[in-house]
Design a protein around this nucleic acid. Structure first.
Lengths: 341, 341
DNA sequence: TTTATCTACGTAAACGTTTGCGGAAAATGA
DNA sequence: TCATTTTCCGCAAACGTTTACGTAGATAAA
């Protein structure tokens, strides 16, 4: 059977393709009777416009790209939900691509996206990315971009982040007030501003409370979780005086739990642990994990909103403005102060 | 500045558009010197082919659609990773759309996908779906589809599942052997085969061990977690003799933990709990949760492989064959038998 | 009446790519 | 030498849309 496209509809209705197209767009240039005829046949034949043909002609894909490191991560999963919600309301599709925190893949993905596939981009930078030429090149393709969470300081555009410095400060302060004196900081090795902010918050909190910053207590984690467990084990064995751990990412907090169980260190008596995390089951852990929880869903929503507003106005270059949402600190068992004796 | 497309390359090289196109495809119809010239300029100008134009002309999008209920779910997140891995290796893009377990959205998404957007589809059916006309209509559009996990029995095509019946049987048996006599079964209300298989495994395990099946012990959960907590609380209060819970999905197991904490029932002494789950932190829960864990990543890989093989051979209709992968049962603290007295 | 405006539709070009066809020049065969 | 094949390239149509422009008829204004 012949495909059901505009030509087919036009033939069966004795109309021109143009009129059918206009009828379906509810143009004022076509009479209401013909509109009805067209719409009737369109639904009868279950006509579906060819999205790519339309994109090609209008130079608009009605699609936004989302480039993130991974999806098996509560934060990004929730952010996607927020993005998708906003996009759907505006009739946009969402094209998700995963970098797996790999620079080469990120470059390749951005290249692909540039070929007219997307109207705009939402992005959380891969931790391995140090050169940003591929991102800057989006300018020339007139593709606006909004960073969220893992922003790129070098590129001036709109950004949605959380108050990472303050949250890290609070988390560290919370550990100090719970009685910790030797606080380790676990982070994923990268030069992204987000990691720097969190580390700075950690450092400043220590200084503000008269503790000195010991660089050997700062551990740079890697991609592989097994390796992280080994690294953390080494650290805790080498420095038995560590009585607090501030994990910059969820995985490192979980790895710390694993190591503590293995070494027989009890949380929170021997070591207190707090970490950035969006884990729903945090309160069900043994012990319940104190967390800094980012408003992931809202971050996604806000980023998408900003991007869609820009697309609406056909602004390809966004003002370098950053919106900061607040994370929430949940105090749970893992950082409970020792009972007064 | 003018856009960099085939026309632009052709002009600058004094060639025809056709030759440039062929050169970039490494056609034998163009000399190796010209190929070099073309490739050189293409990389110099950072030429990126227009994916949609190519799709339109070749009637191929090099894209596979993934339609799933949600992404904030370890199982689906891992499955996506598997899918993405396979797709990337074959040069395919992955277009993810979320149904949020809503029938209307699922229909709308399938409609969109039919408009030439994707070459094939991977799908896990929404729990609310009861009519499958929208799925069957894909046949007419020549779009092959592979179901994974939440398959649709009514549609005959390739399917990738896990051994749900046996896993449920084993999980229930495990509870019985740990000493449980009154075992509740929590599931998400739906008429998908997957839910039926799991329930049947539960029933048969009870019968096989001489327990009778009590329909009032089977609880149909809903979308909202708070509501589920209330439902489970009611159930446990109404039936204080319940000493075991088999949760068909992760969320319901977590909700059970919450309720038990609230009611002061200790796991596993008062109640033992096991559930389907891909939660990485399952062993860190309080107490560590016994799980039936599906090989989510492999499921994604297998489903994608089957689909891509079909696309390779231009087979739009796949033989109704189902591949069954095995889930793994992890015994942890939450189902530990009471110490002999 | 004539002229101008409006309504409703068709014609055709364009978006960027791929590809069947044809053909000129070069290479090969006799 | 001529005939045949091979090599390399251009022309133009096509994919399904959208849209600038043209126009025939109807209506309104003069």
């Amino acid at each position: 059977m012949p495909p059901v496209n505009l030509k087919r509809l036009a033939q069966e209705l004795n109309l021109s393709i143009a009129s059918v197209s206009r009828a379906l767009q509810d143009s004022h240039e076509v009479s209401s009777q013909t509109k009805e005829r067209v719409r009737a046949l369109a639904t009868a034949l279950n006509y579906q416009p060819h999205a790519y043909a339309s994109s090609l002609r209008r130079n608009l894909s009605k699609t936004i790209g989302v480039v993130i490191p991974k999806v098996a991560n509560h934060f990004f999963a929730l952010a996607i939900n927020g993005i998708e919600e906003v996009a759907r309301q505006s009739g946009f599709q969402v094209l998700i691509s995963l970098t797996h925190d790999d620079y080469a893949r990120e470059v390749s993905i951005i290249q692909h996206m540039k070929g007219g596939r997307v109207d705009g981009l939402l992005m959380s930078v891969a931790s391995g990315t140090e050169d940003f030429a591929h991102i800057k090149s989006l300018r020339e393709s007139n593709i606006p971009i909004v960073f969220f969470d893992r922003v790129c300081a070098e590129v001036s555009t709109a950004k949605v982040t959380t108050n990472d410095y303050e949250s890290a400060f609070q988390a560290t302060e919370h550990l100090i007030q719970a009685g910790c004196r030797r606080i380790a900081h676990l982070l994923i090795s990268n030069n992204l501003s987000i990691g720097q902010f969190r580390q700075q918050g950690y450092r400043d909190a220590l200084l503000a409370h008269g503790c000195d910053v010991d660089p050997t207590l700062i551990l740079h984690g890697v991609m592989d979780n097994e390796q992280n467990v080994a690294l953390i084990r080494d650290l805790l064995l080498r420095r038995p005086d560590i009585d607090g751990v501030f994990a910059s990412v969820e995985r490192l907090a979980i790895s710390t739990y694993r190591v503590c169980k293995e070494l027989g260190r009890t949380i929170p008596d021997d070591i207190k642990v707090i970490g950035f995390s969006n884990l729903e089951a945090a309160s069900m852990l043994d012990p319940p994990l104190s967390t800094v929880t980012q408003p992931a869903y809202d971050i996604g929503r806000e980023a998408a909103k900003i991007l869609l507003r820009a697309l609406e106005k056909k602004k390809a270059i966004l003002p370098s403005q950053s919106q900061v949402l607040k994370s929430e600190l949940f105090q749970r068992q893992s950082t409970a102060a020792a009972p007064a004796r």
